[in-house]
Design a protein around this nucleic acid. Structure first.
Lengths: 223, 223
DNA sequence: TGACTTTAGTCGCAGAAAGTGACTAATTCG
DNA sequence: CGAATTAGTCACTTTCTGCGACTAAAGTCA
C-alpha cells in the first residue's frame, strides 16, 4: 500500500454545465486560448486542500457568475488521455442551469449536444457520462425542474421530461403521475402563447409525503 | 484555466470490496502496518499512465487473488482529509464478491458493515458511498446475483435482495417479478437444508427480451 | 359573426401489475 | 403418525398505466 511512482500524478476538476435551449440540451464550452478552433469544458486544477465540491462551484462561478441550480459529481475520468491540462485524472461534475436566467461570461458559449465541436477524448467521455448521470437521477430526484424557470406551464414541464428521457409521454398519464407526487403548486397566473387556450403557470413546491414503498422491479436490461 | 498550485495534487485508488456473509454485508479491510489497531480499505497510488479501472482490478488481485464479479466506480472523494496516503483525492471503486468462493490474502479480513473498525474519514465516506452505489444499481442491473454462488435457491436470492434493499419482500410477488424478468433458469438439482421441503436450485441465465417501456414514475423523495 | 384550428386540461375505461393471504407439497422431528 | 418447517403456487383485490375521447378557451380566416 505504499508504492510511489516517480512522478506524482495530478488531477483536474471539470464541469459539464447543461441547460435546455428550445428543444435540445446544450453544454457550456470555452474557447481554448492559443490554438485555432478548439473548445473545452471549463476546468481547473484545484488549489491544494480545496474540496472538490468547492472547486466545482468556483468553476461555475467563473463561467456563469452563479452556481448551478443542481450539481453532482459524475465520476473520475482517467482513461482517455489528452486532457487540456496534463492531469492524469479529471473529476467531472454535472450542473443544471435554467436557460432563461443563465448568462455566460465572455468566452463561454452554449453548444447543442448534437452539435458539439471536437473535444479532448476525456472531456468527450465526461459529456457522455454527464448525460447518463442526469438520466439516472431523473427518476430519483426532481431535477427536471432545475432546468426550468421559477414558474412554468405543465406542457413545458412535460416537454422537459420528454427531452431528458428521449421519448414522448402521454399527457393525461404525465399529469396523473405529477399530481400523485405533490411536486407542483398552481399559481393564479396564466400565460397565453399564440393560439390555443392559455396555460396555467405552476411553481415547483414539493409537499411532504411518505415514501411510496413499491416492491421490487426487475425492469432493467441485464447485461 | 491554467493556474497551478505550488504542490501538484496527488490521488489514490481505493477499493470497497463487498460480500454477503450470513445475513449481513461485509467489507474487506487490511491492517495498516506500523500503527496499533488500525485498518483501512485496500488502496494504491496508481502508476503514471495506468487506467483507473486497471488499477482497481490490480488492487483486487492483490487482496483477493481474483477480480470481483462486478465492479464500478463510486466516485472521487476529496473532502474528508486524512487518507492513509497523503493523496488529495481518492477514487473509490465498489466490487461485489460471492462469499463462498472468496479467500482473502493474508492480512485482509472481512468486517461486517455494522461492525466496522475506525477508518479514516475519507474511507468511511467511501464505504457509505459504495453502499449507495450498490443500492442505486440494484434496480438497473442484476447485481444481486454477483453476491451469490453459481447456483442458488430462490429463497436465497430473495434474502439477498432483502438484505440489499433493507426491507422484506413478499414471496409470491418476488417470484412473479422474477419470472417476468427471465433472469434465472432452474437446474435439475435440489437442495435439502435441514427440515422443510427441499428447494430447487437455479442459475443466473438472462434471456433476451425487449425493454419494458414503462412510463414516468415520480417515485422519489424530493428535495 | 361563425366555422375551424390549436393548445390546455379532464374523464373514464380496459388491461396490466402489485399486494396479500391462503392453499398444497415435501421434508424433519418427536 | 402428527406437528412443525420450508418451498412453491394460486386466486382475489387493489392500484397503477396506457390511451382515446371529451370539454374549454383562445386565435384565424372567410
Amino acid at each position: 500500500m505504499r508504492d510511489r511512482p516517480s512522478r506524482t500524478p495530478s488531477f483536474s476538476v471539470d464541469l459539464v454545465l447543461v441547460t435546455a435551449v428550445g428543444n435540445a440540451l446544450a453544454v457550456l464550452l470555452t474557447r481554448t486560448t492559443g490554438d485555432r478552433e478548439r473548445w473545452s469544458l471549463p476546468w481547473r486544477v484545484p488549489q491544494a486542500g480545496e474540496a472538490l465540491d468547492t472547486a466545482a462551484a468556483r468553476i461555475s462561478q467563473e463561467a456563469l457568475g452563479e452556481a448551478p441550480s443542481w450539481m453532482e459529481q459524475a465520476g473520475a475520468f482517467g482513461d482517455g488521455k489528452r486532457h487540456p491540462s496534463d492531469a492524469d485524472v479529471s473529476v467531472a461534475y454535472v450542473g443544471l442551469v435554467p436557460h432563461e436566467t443563465a448568462s455566460p461570461r465572455a468566452g463561454f458559449t452554449w453548444f447543442q449536444l448534437a452539435e458539439l465541436p471536437q473535444l479532448s477524448p476525456r472531456q468527450r467521455a465526461m459529456v457522455d457520462g454527464a448525460t447518463k448521470t442526469i438520466q439516472g437521477r431523473l427518476d430519483q430526484a426532481p431535477i427536471a425542474f432545475r432546468l426550468l424557470p421559477a414558474t412554468f406551464t405543465l406542457s413545458e414541464l412535460q416537454q422537459m421530461y420528454e427531452l431528458l428521457l428521449g421519448k414522448r409521454l402521454h399527457k393525461a398519464s404525465f399529469r396523473r403521475a405529477l399530481q400523485g407526487a405533490w411536486l407542483v403548486e398552481p399559481t393564479d397566473e396564466w400565460r397565453s402563447e399564440g393560439r390555443g387556450r392559455p396555460a396555467q403557470l405552476y411553481r415547483y413546491l414539493p409537499k411532504k409525503r411518505r415514501r411510496a414503498h413499491r416492491g421490487l422491479r426487475f425492469d432493467f436490461l441485464y447485461p
